[in-house]
Design a protein around this nucleic acid. Structure first.
Length: 861
RNA sequence: GCCCGGAUGGUGAAAUCGGCAAACACGAUAGACUCAAAAUCUAUUGCCCGAAAGGGCUUGCGGGUUCGAGUCCCGCUCCGGGCACCA
């Protein structure tokens, strides 16, 4: 009955070119895409009685037509949506567009097109190419972050955060990108000190900026990671980013001025104090100097006239040095440290020893971390050691280094060991000494146990037009005044000039800027900064629960109905920023009362799909190596391209796009043809050469294969092994082709069961093909996607016979087909009676026989 | 430097619990069909020796545990990613 067989028959001149004849991919796929849309098959209401599941792919930034990265992402998402729907769940599958962002504004500066127009064109392009993929969404819930309805609630959330003290304004040294003409968050600066978007070298500037107090949640964000079903490496990245470190803070008395200089010293009762943070309080006896950050407020007070010029030089250097230069000098090592630090002329008293040590400033100490001051312990800290070398400072060991340490070059020893030169800590181990040192500080009231985080507050203001305006007013009398909630949204006017000025275009728009203070009525100025687009993406998944709500961001009941997102799918590039911000936002929204009763973790399970790479490089618009899906759509359809992404390798692995890729995609098209022929030609010529009645051995075996395939595909999908799920479907198809060629013909019932099962398994993988063939087989009946997922018969899945492997000394020497219930004695007897074994053994007696029935017997001699 | 991953045929990969290494594909070779091509189908395809029968070797490298290791343990090499003056 095979395609080629039928083509042989006169009067059955079906074409042998199946991708064209009988299966017009374009037409079939369009038909089903239209139908899914019109039927609203994947629309779910909030009162849907079925148990719920929330499946979400990261909403895309609309940069134009979809590329292979999108296709990959949405193929996985769609598979899960359809699969779970077939399991009887109400699956929430929304999508929207992350439509604020710099490219639209940069285009406006270049070409004069308004960012809205630019963005909406691109949304249309992206939407078209997503619809062409046949991924199904509840389009009624579509969100665009530049939509006034969305802006309104982003602003309302901002105001609630402001009220709760979670949003605040502060002057801060910020990362300024000269290319983007705006401030960046720490997260947006790459390790080499360049902008993640434009690649320009980021410089430091002091500016008044808006922040979200994410650090208030640092501990919770860190601890809660343990309970998440996320890839371990993503959790590790977040842990590193939060960067918790435990230690102690304590204060040291200072003596201003040169030691012994007449009139230069401070009287004891006026002695100022400096607080330092250390993770190694046990090493305090080895402190030989103290270092303050160049920006530390005590620096002026401590600097003596003689040291003034040197100190100013270091401060100047620190203020103007860009991140990239600082990194370069860090690599330069000790040589540059001389210039990067200076003695202030003053001294600090080590509370542990009572001795005085010199106070330095150096740019390797950061004002924004800890207390902005450290104790210098060169013996047990590598940076301190390098600094001490450069400045000729003393080194006192407080941990006994291992044998041969000094001979091997010495230097800082940071490992464990016995405490020495440390007074009451002598003889203890490092950990115990830390605890004792902290106790000692606490008893005297000069210090305590402290935890510090690397995580900084989130800088959210951007000097840009195409973002969500920050809804506050600056009043000369009342300071910062919130825009009254009934006046939201604050919308940016359209008639602005897009100039690369480094200021928000809003700042130049008189009509926007000039307002009256809502409190006192005085003339006031509107805030002209807009929000980081990561703010929009920090709550969109909540808005999806209740997208049309016009009096609150979302109803709490709706959020409780759907949250958390059960499966979140997206690129690993968002492992830190977006995911951390969204976790913070969810907690903050709960705590300000906007989302009571929802889980504090928004994404219960996160799947990080692999990147598409070309010649080792990430595929991206900026690299200009995007591969559009249109060519593949034309040749093998959406199903063919989906099949490629599903089968090319594990979904979490990166995909290398090579010369071979086109051929693999062709191969996927070939598989679709094989399925098409297998099912369609049998359906249209039904009854031909079929049997009914008793099942023969081959019929039974085919049934077993069918049921084993159902089990395998189900298990594969459950464990996100889509590529092996596809492989199992291919095996089934190969088996059915063999069967169809059988001498005795096929058994009608067996073959129909096989075809239907195959189509059900393919429904989430190649949905158009499965739907079309199902309709062909069951005209007028409910479609394949409204069928329940197939189940397997446990009896049929059991093996009927097993291959017993016979090994001699661990090497395979024979294979025997046996009953799966064979016992150890029988297996052993069989193995020993094998001619291969007797030949090999000769005169020798087996020393030991390991029998693992029914799979293996190992004869050891 | 620190912390995570990873390394299996010509290529992408599979092997879910320590038990037949290489499923499923891509590519390649040969054949069938065809005037021919395409498409389709059939066979072969880890490497080495051998005419064959057959034998030997093989999961980055070196050790170890075990009757038995791609899988577990120890030590390396290389590749990818994250963090990196964070005291």
């Amino acid at each position: 009955m095979t395609g080629e067989g039928m083509a042989d028959q006169p009067g059955q001149s079906r074409s042998i070119c199946p991708m064209v004849q009988g299966y017009d991919i374009e037409a079939v796929e369009q038909k089903w895409q239209r139908r899914w849309l019109e039927e609203g098959a994947y629309q779910v209401d909030n009162d849907d009685p079925r148990p719920s599941s929330y499946v979400l792919c990261m909403y895309p930034y609309p940069s134009g037509p979809a590329h292979q990265g999108h296709v990959r992402n949405y193929t996985f998402g769609d598979l899960v949506v359809r699969y779970r729907t077939m399991h009887g769940l109400a699956v929430l599958s929304p999508i929207g567009f992350d439509s604020f962002g710099l490219p639209a504004e940069n285009a406006a500066i270049k070409t004069g097109t308004h960012p809205r127009e630019f963005t909406e064109e691109r949304i249309a392009e992206l939407k078209t190419s997503l619809l062409r993929l046949g991924a199904v969404y509840d389009w009624r819930r579509e969100i665009r972050s530049h939509d006034p309805a969305y802006i309104k609630f982003t602003q309302l959330i901002f105001l609630r955060f402001l009220q709760a003290g979670l949003a605040y304004r502060a002057s801060a040294p910020v990362n300024w990108c000269p290319g983007c003409m705006t401030v960046l968050a720490n997260e947006q600066v790459l390790p080499d000190g360049t902008c993640e978007r434009s690649g320009d070298v980021v410089v430091r500037r002091d500016l008044e900026q808006w922040f979200f107090r994410i650090t208030a949640y640092a501990e919770e964000l860190l601890e809660a990671l343990d309970g998440l079903q996320w890839p371990e490496r993503v959790k590790v990245m977040q842990r590193n980013w939060i960067g918790r470190s435990e230690g102690a803070e304590f204060e040291l008395k200072l003596r201003v001025g040169d030691q012994g200089a007449a009139g230069g010293g401070t009287r004891p009762e006026e002695a100022p104090l400096v607080r330092v943070f250390t993770t190694r309080p046990d090493t305090a006896f080895g402190m030989t100097y103290v270092v303050l950050a160049p920006e530390h407020p005590l620096v002026d007070l401590l600097t003596t006239p003689a040291q003034r010029s040197q100190v100013d030089e270091v401060r100047q250097l620190a203020a103007t040095t860009t991140e990239i230069e600082r990194l370069a000098t860090a690599e330069g090592g000790a040589a540059s440290l001389g210039k990067r630090g200076a003695f202030t002329g003053s001294f600090a008293v080590n509370p542990f020893t009572g001795g005085e040590v010199p106070v330095y400033i150096a740019d390797y100490v950061l004002m924004s971390y800890g207390t902005g001051a450290i104790m210098g312990v060169p013996a047990e800290d590598e940076r301190d050691f390098a600094f001490a070398q450069a400045h000729g400072l003393e080194v006192i060991r407080t941990v006994r280094p291992p044998e041969g340490w000094e001979e091997a070059g010495g230097g800082a020893y940071t490992g464990p060991g016995e405490k020495i030169n440390s007074g009451f800590l002598n003889g203890l181990g490092v950990e115990e000494a830390k605890a004792r040192a902290i106790e000692w500080l606490e008893e005297r009231g000069i210090g305590s146990r402290t935890v510090n985080y690397r995580l900084r507050d989130w800088l959210v203001s951007r000097q840009r037009y195409w973002g969500c305006p920050i809804p506050v007013i600056h009043c000369p009398n009342d300071g910062i005044v919130a825009v009254p909630e009934e006046d939201l949204p604050v919308l940016a006017p359209d008639d602005v000039e897009f100039l690369p000025s480094g200021q928000s275009p809003l700042a130049l728009h008189e009509g926007f800027v000039n307002v009256t203070c809502p409190k006192c009525g005085a003339p006031a100025r509107r805030e002209t900064d807009t929000m980081d687009t990561f703010v929009d993406s920090s709550w969109y998944f909540l808005r999806f629960c209740d997208p049309d709500n016009d009096h609150e961001p979302f109803s709490q009941e709706a959020a409780r109905r759907w949250m958390p997102v059960d499966t979140y799918i997206g690129g690993i590039e968002h492992a830190i920023l977006h995911l951390l911000y969204a976790r913070f936002f969810t907690r903050a929204l709960i705590d300000v009362g906007l989302a009571s009763g929802i889980p504090r973790e928004p994404f219960a399970h996160y799947f990080a799909q692999g990147m598409i790479r070309m010649a080792g490089e990430k595929m991206s618009k900026s690299r200009g190596n995007l591969v559009s899906p249109w060519e593949a759509y034309r040749r093998v359809g959406a199903d063919g391209l989906r099949l490629f992404h599903l089968s090319v390798g594990p979904p979490a692995d990166d995909v290398d796009w090579t010369e071979q890729t086109d051929q693999i995609i062709e191969g996927c098209g070939r598989f679709l043809s094989r399925v098409w022929r297998l099912v369609s030609e049998w359906t249209t010529a039904a009854g031909q050469s079929t049997r009914s009645g008793t099942l023969n051995d081959q019929d039974l075996e085919v049934r077993r294969v069918v049921h084993r395939t159902i089990r395998a595909v189900t298990e594969d999908i459950e464990r996100w092994s889509f590529h092996t799920a596809v492989a199992h479907c291919r095996e089934l198809v190969n088996e059915l082709y063999q069967y169809a060629r059988a001498k005795d013909g096929v058994h009608q019932m067996v073959f129909e069961e096989a075809q239907d099962s195959l189509l059900l398994l393919l429904a989430p993988l190649t949905p158009h093909l499965a739907a079309e063939l199902w309709e062909l087989r069951h005209p007028g009946q409910p479609g394949v996607h409204s069928q329940p997922w197939p189940s397997f018969d446990p009896d049929l899945v059991k093996e009927r016979s097993v291959t017993l492997v016979v090994q001699v000394n661990g090497k395979v020497r024979d294979r025997v087909t046996v009953d799966p219930n064979i016992d150890a004695a029988e297996a052993q007897a069989l193995a020993l009676s094998s001619s291969k074994v007797t030949e090999l053994l000769g005169e020798r007696k087996p020393r030991r026989i390991v029998a693992r029935p029914p799979h293996l017997v190992n004869v050891v001699v």
